Amino acid sequence: MKEPVDTATGAFVAHRNLLFTIAYEMLGSAADAEDVLQETWLRWADVDLGEVQHPRAYLVRMVTRQALTRLRTLSRRRESYVGPWLPEPLLTAPDVAEDVELAESVSTAMLLVLETLAPVERAVFVLREVFDVGYEEIAAAVGKAPASVRQIAHRARAHVAARRPRGTVTATETRDVLAAFRRAVETGDLKGLLDLIAPDVVLLTDGGGAVRAALTPVIGAAEVAAVLSRLTTTTRLRPLQINGHPALALGTDAEPDTILTLHVTNGRITSLYAVRNPSKLSHTTHPTPLTR
């Protein structure tokens, strides 16, 4: 006999933030993560809860399967994406930044590394390394034997370790560099800007073909500074927390037109990520709850 609908709803709502975080880390897209949650809910509503011993594990398995199906479709779609593809930015509350491991796992730089994994590798890495899910549970979620999942996890871990950003930077250090960067841009201080960015800095701009943006990576301090210098002194740069890290929003409070995040190494900016695609900015005005 099925449980009442409100019981199913209560169990789903209790784990919703966790399920969204898993789906987002697997997909790099809040819009697609929301779609995956909707699909998961529709299937969960038909489950006989009397046969479910551990609702959390069951729901994690369901959302992983739905995210894997969506990820395979997205991988093909992104091959024809106009210009660089960047993850969809999320405005996050302070508690995300306080969980250092969670904040690192949803950073723009890490999500771009996860994009280089095959779908099953990404699912296994996210579930094991970020959410500490057991190998048996992961095996059930991805349809592989536990021994195979251990091998995939080892391979994915090595792959990510070889590509993840080097060095540990505190939120305070990033915030300080970001504040100096903001002052340099707003005052037109080209020398100050050049002092802040590394010689081999890389700027990626994601317009998705909908707005003006560089269609290829901009590489080198002089080239990146030239692009940034086009921002007029009347452009408002507002600090905020994006994906658990200090960032800047350009445009109005109600409707930012660009979200700018960065990566700092040894006190200098080595990577800049500018998301301008309007379809990716809907989750930057109200905080999105993320949790492990």
Score class of each variant (00 low, 15 high):
Y273P: 01
S80V: 08
S29H: 13
T73V: 13
P199D: 06
V264L: 13
L59R: 08
L190K: 00
T270Q: 08
A139M: 07
K191H: 04
D99P: 11
P217E: 02
L90V: 07
T170C: 04
T64Y: 01
T172Q: 13
L127D: 03
T216Q: 13
V169Q: 12
R150F: 00
H283K: 07
H54K: 06
T233E: 12
T284K: 10
A33R: 11
A254F: 15
A45Q: 14
Q241M: 15
I219C: 07
L19K: 14
R238D: 03
A11P: 04
T9E: 13
A103T: 13
P94S: 08
A161N: 11
E137T: 12
Y81L: 09
I242C: 10
A139Y: 04
A8D: 04
G209C: 09
N243L: 14
L193Y: 02
E255T: 12
A8N: 15
R122H: 02
G208P: 15
L262N: 09
R122D: 00
R76E: 13
L203D: 03
Q66W: 01
R61Y: 05
P278M: 15
T174L: 14
A140L: 13
A214K: 01
P84H: 10
T265Q: 10
T172L: 15
E129Y: 06
T233P: 03
V47P: 08
A156H: 03
R150P: 01
V96W: 13
A109F: 12
R56L: 08
V96L: 12
W85H: 10
V202L: 00
A14F: 11
A184M: 03
A118T: 01
Q151F: 04
D95K: 07
P289T: 10
E101F: 12
K191N: 01
V36Q: 02
P289A: 06
L68S: 01
L178W: 08
I152H: 01
A162M: 11
P89K: 05
R56N: 09
T40Q: 00
D253Q: 10
A93P: 05
P287S: 04
R182Y: 04
A171I: 15
L260K: 05
S75R: 11
S229M: 02
R236C: 05
A171C: 02
E51V: 00
P55H: 09
F131P: 10
S105C: 15
W41S: 04
L114Y: 15
V113A: 11
R268W: 06
L194F: 03
L74G: 00
Y58L: 01
A141H: 00
P55C: 11
E129F: 06
A221V: 07
A97N: 04
T216K: 11
